[in-house]
């Protein structure tokens, strides 16, 4: 935290706002991981951390380093792009595996569906 003293106040405020927003959203997502009852509900919870949570923390980092170096520092965008592209792949594979397991083991764990087969 030695070189943050030269940061103008507006940049510090913006960075703090987006950092806290992102961290809070991530925390709420993890609370959902605990509070929601079935696996299919819980699969929604971590996407809060990967969409808005990661997005605003990355934005905070971009603002901080861009103002600090007084040039656009955009490499954090790669993290946002990477997370957006990989999360659907893992979650889709995981939910398909869960669906497959539920169909084979005990189908009463399946949540309400319009036409159960």
């Amino acid at each position: 935290m030695m070189n943050a003293a030269g940061l103008p106040l507006w940049a510090a405020l913006l960075t703090s706002f987006f950092l806290l927003l992102g961290a809070t959203v991530t925390l709420i997502g993890c609370i959902g991981l605990i509070r929601l009852r079935t696996f299919y509900e819980r699969i929604h919870a971590p996407t809060m951390g990967t969409s808005l949570g990661a997005g605003s923390i990355v934005l905070a980092s971009i603002i901080f380093f861009s103002v600090l170096d007084s040039r656009p520092v955009l490499h954090e965008v790669l993290i946002a792009v990477f997370v957006t592209v990989t999360t659907p792949v893992t979650l889709m594979l995981l939910s398909r595996a869960a669906l497959y397991r539920d169909h084979t083991d005990d189908s009463r764990k399946l949540p309400r569906s319009r036409d159960q087969d």
């Binding site: 509900e41 929604h44 919870a45 996407t47 592209v85 999360t87 659907p88 398909r96």
Partner: peptide, 28 residues
């Protein structure tokens, strides 16, 4: 479409059946 639906916390893409062309998704 899968990326969009999965990125939104309210919806999750579960399975797409290519023969019946039907998407199975879970909503919160």
């Amino acid at each position: 479409l899968a990326c969009i639906l999965t990125c939104m916390p309210g919806t999750a893409w579960i399975e797409y059946n290519a023969t019946s062309r039907e998407l199975l998704m879970h909503v919160l």
